[in-house]
């Protein structure tokens, strides 16, 4: 961390930028707390609409009265949690192997996996959809969670990380006669914890916010994720129940990730020792 004081102008510019940065979100929150009748006339009632006066909780009440919302939260939690766990497990193992084990075929498999980074979701979408349909596996939580596990970003990150760990650590263990499993479990994993934290958060965020796949795969309300469920409530933008409710649905869909972010922001913002540089 840098200790020197910032020049004043930098301080002012960055602070001002931060205020501007927050405006859209504050505005959304404020609109969600104002009555719909007011919003149909003006969105700038009190101080450009940034202050929710007059204040109402009706929009949130309306959405929460839809009985399925808690279930959708739960589904999202389960789906995002499962894929995060599986991504962590598979990509730390694979990352370690790609970075530190010289095995036949590595020079072919690793580039192949990396190339997978560049496959757009929409490309594999149809074959994937048809495949799960053939297995009769749509409308289930595993189907919602699994495709994300195949994405190579975690493997890429972990490989980068393990590559940068000095050889000396491993050599000492080797001399003791430790195998790869032992080295991985006792030496590498503890070292990788901060990195895994980052990866977990990224995976959870992206999985939570996933839209296209759950939209098409989950056709029954019981298997909705919150993003899809609330997007359905948003319905047609043009014929929606009102701006306030629309904004409230946006706030609600974001709430769990916001809470998660506030809880773990230390890990997200400071603790990560993403060692992409020596």
């Amino acid at each position: 961390m840098n200790q020197r004081a910032l020049p004043r102008w930098v301080f002012i510019v960055v602070t001002a930028a931060a205020v501007v940065w927050l405006i859209p979100v504050v505005w959304m929150l404020s609109l969600s707390l104002q009555p719909n009748e007011l919003l149909s006339r003006t969105t700038a009632n009190t101080f450009l609409g940034l202050v929710p006066v007059p204040f109402t909780l009706d929009n949130f009440r309306a959405i929460l009265s839809i009985g399925d919302t808690p279930r959708w939260f739960m589904n999202s939690m389960l789906v995002a949690g499962t894929s995060t766990f599986l991504v962590l497990a598979t990509s730390t193992l694979a990352g370690y192997a790609f970075a530190r084990i010289r095995f036949t075929g590595r020079s072919i498999v690793y580039p192949l996996v990396l190339a997978g980074l560049m496959v757009p979701e929409q490309v594999v979408f149809i074959p994937l959809y048809v495949m799960f349909a053939d297995w009769n596996a749509h409308n289930s939580l595993p189907t919602l969670a699994l495709p994300r596990v195949a994405l190579p970003i975690g493997v890429f990150l972990m490989t980068q990380f393990f590559k940068d760990i000095p050889d000396s650590l491993e050599e000492a263990a080797r001399l003791e006669g430790c195998g790869h499993a032992r080295i991985f479990w006792s030496i590498m994993l503890p070292l990788a914890t901060p990195m895994m934290m980052t990866l977990a958060i990224i995976t959870f965020l992206y999985s939570w916010n996933d839209y296209l796949w759950p939209l098409v795969s989950a056709q029954r309300t019981d298997f909705f994720t919150i993003t899809v469920g609330l997007a359905k409530i948003q319905g047609n933008f043009a014929q929606s129940q009102g701006l306030g409710q629309l904004m409230a649905s946006g706030v609600l869909a974001s709430l769990p990730v916001i809470i998660l972010f506030l809880m773990f922001q230390k890990y997200i913002l400071r603790g990560i020792a993403l060692s992409t540089d020596k």
Partner: peptide
């Protein structure tokens, strides 16, 4: 104990997801 076995064993769990859910559809 060979590197070949360990290497493949370590990447196998990921490949189980990668091959059918990304490579094959691609």
């Amino acid at each position: 104990h060979s590197d070949n076995f360990s290497g493949w064993a370590f990447i196998l769990p990921y490949l189980i997801a990668f091959v059918p859910l990304l490579l094959w559809p691609f």
